[in-house]
């Protein structure tokens, strides 16, 4: 039995690595078929991939600002090709409960609110993402799941917001104007 399990895990890691390579090269459509892969495997592989890119000093860096539930802003420089969920985990940002299902489209806890102009340029949502957003807390017209949004160069300087309750949300919009 242990052999079988071992084989399965090797196969799935290979699949995940393939995903990492494809997404790193910009084959975004691949994520639609493979979006249910466990995030942890994906991120491990994309880290390896990114590390090799990093060595050749070709990975463009993108500045992203996160505003957490308490309205506290963190600014991080991240690599293209990481999902925003990867960013929150890898940079250890202080967002309680973020990414509970680890990027497998089974919850809505990596819900982020985008600025409208950024939101309009994002890749379209798959049905399964909308399914989960429909259950999210404080959903807005510019909400997405962080696990489904991959950082790209044009996003440099964008701010994303962790949704709060109605009162706090109003304070955020006031603060951002």
């Amino acid at each position: 039995m242990s052999k079988r399990v071992c084989l399965q895990s090797i196969l799935s890691v290979q699949k995940a690595c393939l995903w990492g390579v494809l997404s790193g090269l910009g084959f975004q459509s691949a994520r639609h078929q493979l979006h249910l892969l466990p995030r942890r495997q994906i991120s491990r592989c994309s880290q390896l991939f990114n590390a090799s890119q990093h060595n050749s000093s070709t990975t463009p860096k993108v500045l992203v600002h996160f505003v957490n539930q308490d309205g506290v802003k963190s600014s991080v420089t991240v690599s293209e090709g990481e999902t925003l969920l990867d960013v929150v985990i890898n940079k250890n940002l202080d967002i309680s409960g973020f990414g509970a299902c680890e990027g497998t489209l089974a919850c809505s806890t990596c819900h982020l609110v985008f600025e409208e102009d950024v939101f309009d340029r994002l890749e379209p949502m798959v049905d399964e993402e909308v399914d989960m957003l429909d259950l999210a807390y404080g959903v807005t017209k510019t909400s997405r799941l962080g696990c489904q949004v991959t950082v790209e160069g044009w996003m440099d300087g964008m701010t994303v917001y962790v949704p709060q309750d109605v009162k706090d949300q109003r304070e955020i919009s006031k603060g951002s104007k």
Partner: peptide
């Protein structure tokens, strides 16, 4: 058949 939901166990 919803093992992905059980990922919360890690947290």
């Amino acid at each position: 058949d919803h093992p992905e939901v059980k990922n919360v166990i890690n947290t």
